[in-house]
Lab assay of single mutants.
Amino acid sequence: KPGPLPPNLDDLKVSELRQQLRIRGLPVSGTKTALMDRLRPFQD
C-alpha cells in the first residue's frame, strides 16, 4: 500500500514523484508539474 504523500509535492524530486506514480499504477511521463497534478488526488 502506498505511503502518505508529503503536503508539498514540490519538495519531491521528479524521480520520487515517478516512484509514487508507479506505486499507484499511474503514467510516469510528463513534466514535474504534470506529475504533481496526477498525484494531487491522492493527497489527504
Rank of each mutant, 00 (worst) to 15 (best):
F42L: 14
T33H: 02
D10E: 15
K32M: 02
P2H: 11
T33Q: 06
L26M: 13
S29A: 11
S29W: 05
P27I: 06
R18E: 10
V28S: 14
G30A: 00
D44E: 12
R40S: 11
R40T: 11
S29Q: 13
L21Q: 04
F42M: 09
D44H: 10
G30Q: 02
D37S: 01
L17N: 00
I23Y: 13
P7Y: 11
L21D: 07
V14C: 03
E16C: 06
D10V: 13
R18K: 13
P27A: 06
N8H: 06
Q43L: 12
D44G: 12
P41M: 09
G25F: 10
D10P: 04
S15I: 09
V28R: 02
A34Q: 03
P41K: 07
K1G: 05
V14N: 04
S29P: 03
F42T: 12
P27H: 10
E16W: 03
N8E: 09
D11E: 11
R38H: 00
K1L: 02
L9F: 13
Q20T: 03
D44P: 06
L5T: 07
K1Y: 03
K32T: 07
E16D: 08
R22E: 12
Q43D: 15
L9S: 03
P27W: 00
L39F: 02
D44F: 07
Q43S: 11
E16Y: 07
L17S: 02
K1W: 00
S29F: 08
G30N: 01
V28L: 11
R24T: 00
D37F: 00
P4H: 14
R22T: 08
M36N: 03
R24N: 02
D37L: 04
G3A: 14
L21I: 01
T33E: 15
R38D: 01
V14Q: 00
Q20S: 02
G30W: 00
P4M: 15
Q19G: 06
A34M: 08
G25I: 01
D44V: 13
L12D: 05
I23M: 14
D11L: 13
L9T: 02
P7I: 14
P7E: 15
S15R: 09
L21S: 00
S15H: 13
L12R: 06
D37T: 05
R40V: 06
V28G: 10
T31F: 02
N8Q: 10
R40W: 02
Q20Y: 06
R22Q: 00
S15T: 13
R18H: 07
L5Q: 10
T33S: 11
R24E: 04
P7R: 15
L12Y: 15
L35K: 05
E16T: 04
K32L: 01
L26Q: 04
P27D: 14
P7D: 13
L21A: 12
K1M: 01
P7V: 15
K32H: 01
P6Y: 06
K32R: 12
S15M: 09
S15A: 14
P7Q: 15
P4C: 11
R24F: 01
T33Y: 12
P6S: 11
L17Y: 00
T33F: 10
N8A: 10
P27K: 11
D37M: 08
R24C: 02
K32W: 02
M36A: 08
S15L: 02
D37P: 00
V28H: 08
D10S: 08
Q43K: 04
V28I: 15
L26E: 07
T33L: 09
M36T: 08
R18Q: 10
P27T: 06
R38C: 00
L12P: 00
P27R: 07
T33D: 14
Q43C: 12
S29L: 07
R38L: 02
R24Y: 00
V14F: 00
Q20W: 01
E16P: 00
Q19D: 12
L21V: 05
P6Q: 08
G25V: 00
I23W: 08
R18S: 04
T31R: 07
L21M: 07
L5R: 05
G25L: 00
G25M: 07
G3Q: 15
D11P: 02
D10H: 07
Q19Y: 11
R38G: 05
S15W: 10
A34I: 07
G3N: 09
M36W: 00
R24A: 02
P2F: 15
A34V: 13
P6W: 05
G25C: 07
G3Y: 11
P2M: 15
T31W: 00
L9N: 01
D11W: 05
D37N: 15
I23V: 11
R18M: 04
I23L: 12
D37H: 06
S29E: 14
V28M: 13
K32A: 05
F42K: 11
D10Y: 13
L9H: 04
R40L: 08
R18T: 06
L9V: 12
I23G: 09
R40G: 07
G3C: 01
N8W: 00
Q43F: 13
S29G: 13
L35H: 00
Q43E: 11
L17V: 03
K1A: 02
Q20E: 14
D10A: 15
L5M: 10
L39Q: 05
L9D: 01
D11A: 14
G3M: 14
Q43A: 12
R24H: 00
P6H: 11
E16Q: 09
P2Y: 14
P2Q: 15
R18A: 06
L35W: 04
P41G: 11
L21G: 02
P4G: 09
L35S: 06
P2W: 09
V14L: 10
P7L: 12
P27Q: 12
Q20H: 13
L26I: 05
L5H: 07
R22D: 12
Q20G: 02
G30D: 04
L12Q: 04
S29Y: 11
A34R: 03
S15E: 14
D37A: 08
L17G: 02
G25A: 06
N8M: 08
P27M: 07
G25R: 06
L39K: 03
F42C: 10
L5N: 08
S15Q: 08
L39H: 03
R38M: 05
P2N: 12
R22W: 01
P41Y: 05
L12T: 06
P27Y: 01
A34S: 09
G30P: 03
L39G: 04
P6R: 08
D10T: 10
L5P: 00
P6F: 07
P2E: 15
P4E: 14
S15G: 11
K32F: 03
T31A: 14
K32I: 05
P2T: 12
G3K: 15
T33C: 11
P41Q: 12
L26R: 01
D37V: 03
D44Q: 09
Q19L: 09
P6C: 12
L35P: 04
L39M: 06
S15C: 10
L12H: 03
R38S: 05
L39T: 03
T33G: 12
L17I: 03
R38Y: 04
P7C: 09
A34W: 00
R38T: 07
L9K: 02
M36R: 09
D44W: 09
L35E: 07
A34P: 01
P27V: 02
D10F: 04
L39V: 03
K32V: 07
K32N: 03
A34K: 06
L5K: 04
Q20R: 03
V28C: 15
G30L: 01
N8T: 10
M36C: 05
P6K: 10
P2A: 15
P41V: 11
P2L: 15
F42P: 12
L12K: 08
R38K: 06
S15F: 09
L9W: 03
P41R: 08
N8K: 10
G3R: 13
R24L: 05
L5F: 07
D44C: 07
G30C: 02
T31N: 15
R18G: 01
V14R: 00
L35T: 04
P7F: 15
P4D: 15
R22V: 04
Q19E: 13
S15N: 08
P4R: 11
F42A: 13
Q20L: 13
R22H: 03
I23A: 14
L35Q: 09
P6I: 07
P4N: 15
L5C: 12
D10L: 11
T31H: 07
S29H: 11
P27G: 06
R24K: 06
R38P: 09
P6L: 08
P4K: 15
T31Q: 08
N8C: 07
P6M: 10
R38W: 00
L17F: 00
R18C: 14
K32Q: 04
L12N: 04
L21R: 01
A34L: 02
K32C: 02
P6D: 09
M36D: 04
Q20A: 12
Q43G: 10
S29R: 06
F42G: 08
A34Y: 12
G30M: 00
R18V: 07
R22K: 13
L35C: 10
P41F: 08
Q43W: 11
G25S: 07
I23T: 08
